[in-house]
Simulated scan of single mutants.
Amino acid sequence: MTVFDQEKKVLVLDGGFGTTLEDVFHKDISTPLWSAKPIDEDPGLIINTHLAFLRAGADIILTSTYQCAFSTFEKAGYSREDAVRLMRKSVQLAVAAKALYLADRKDVLPHQVKIALSLGPFGATLSPAQEFGGYYPPPYGPGGSKDKGTNALNDDVEEERAIEALKEFHLERLRVFKEDEEAWNAIDFIAFETVPLTREIRAIRRAVATLQSEDPMWSKPYWISAVFPEGRFPEKDDTGQHVEIAKVVKALLEHDKDQIAAYPDGIGINCTSVEFLFPLVQGISKEIIQPTREQVERRPWLVLYPNGGDVYEPTTKSWIPQRNEKSWSDSFGGVVHEVVDAEIWPGIIVGGCCKTRPHDIYELSKIVKHSICKP
């Protein structure tokens, strides 16, 4: 029994934290730390941003740690000790926001407000960022592969070496929080987000399994959400073709050769335009319900938090606005309706990613709580 298993079958996640800092609070966070920059410089801003999403109807808030890693803190001029302190402080700020929200809302119980630890992929620590491309340097990837049109490793030895390197990257960050009892106890979920490569998915599962093997009392549900720019998974094969969604689901759920790989409590998609979402969910759902698939003992939740529709240009670090006939909440709400009606998933977490603001989450929350999940 996990906190995923409860009376509510649809939980609302917050929206785009970093872009809300920029668009709503008009803050310049253009550093390697991105949304983590105010943890040290303006902690009240972090709290207020969390509060804005909670007041908009979010059940879950993500910590401002997406781009946190020792390498990004080093680029921003912080020591390793400061990096540890600030990563843990981000959890404390989420806790403070939760406490303030509960003080104002006597009708909400503490267990109804969840905190998810946000952990981006290795690509989010690179410059330019590579969560939408997955072109990683050695030993995490082939290096220089963008010019060759592939980001995949076809040599089994190199693939295994890359998976282990990525596992250590994610394990190092997990330990920062696991080794602090106060921070760890405050976390309800762990969210691995915007993952562009199947080898990184496998690495994450191994990292979580390592911690689980060390701690028999492990009780943190976790999800892995992949990214599909323009409706396609970033990873390519040796012919330059994007890998099929079946391979992504296989990496998410199937046994990992002879390695111990933790089964995720949730799988899904984030930072992908709503227009691509439904066919992608259909593809994932098809793989989930295949009668011949070797299933483990339980089915995961589905986690969906698309972006606001604008397109990110990593070289200029800017967003290109897109025109949409329907509002983001109406378009996404329709997808959520379809998913709930299909009755394939035991539960769903829905929210927003980049360029979704508290108002978007407010509108989505109304649709979810008053239409899709009405008594």
Rank of each mutant, 00 (worst) to 15 (best):
P279H: 13
G240L: 07
I269P: 05
E235N: 03
T272Y: 09
R206I: 07
A203M: 10
D258M: 07
D256I: 01
L277W: 04
F278L: 15
G266F: 01
S285I: 07
Q282R: 15
S225E: 09
F276K: 09
P229G: 08
E254V: 10
Y263I: 14
C271L: 02
L197M: 13
L211R: 05
Q259G: 00
L174V: 02
P196G: 01
S225C: 11
R199F: 08
G283V: 13
I201K: 01
T272A: 09
L280K: 11
K250Q: 13
D256G: 03
F189T: 10
E193W: 04
I269T: 10
F276T: 06
E193R: 05
F278S: 15
Y222R: 02
K178E: 09
W223S: 01
F276N: 15
G240P: 06
A261Y: 04
L280P: 13
R175N: 03
A261V: 02
K257D: 14
I260Y: 10
L197A: 06
V176G: 02
K257E: 14
A261D: 08
R232C: 10
D238P: 00
I204E: 00
L277F: 00
L252C: 02
A251I: 00
A203G: 12
A183L: 09
A246Y: 08
A186S: 15
A251T: 02
S273A: 10
R202S: 14
F228C: 12
R206N: 08
K236N: 02
A262M: 01
V281M: 11
H242C: 11
K247Q: 12
K236L: 05
P221K: 12
A251W: 03
G283M: 14
A191L: 06
E275V: 15
D265M: 02
A251Y: 02
L211K: 10
F278H: 13
Q241T: 11
A209H: 01
I204K: 05
F276S: 15
K236E: 03
D238V: 06
K286Q: 15
E230M: 08
D238T: 04
F189P: 10
N270A: 07
I224M: 01
D188P: 11
T198W: 01
V243C: 00
E235C: 03
D237Q: 03
I284E: 10
E181T: 08
K257C: 04
V208I: 15
K286A: 15
F192L: 02
F233N: 08
N270E: 09
L252K: 05
H242W: 07
E254T: 09
Q241D: 14
I204W: 07
A207I: 00
Q241F: 13
S219C: 12
D256E: 09
A262S: 13
V195D: 06
V243K: 04
M217R: 04
A251C: 00
T210S: 07
D237W: 07
I224C: 00
D238G: 10
N270W: 05
E275T: 11
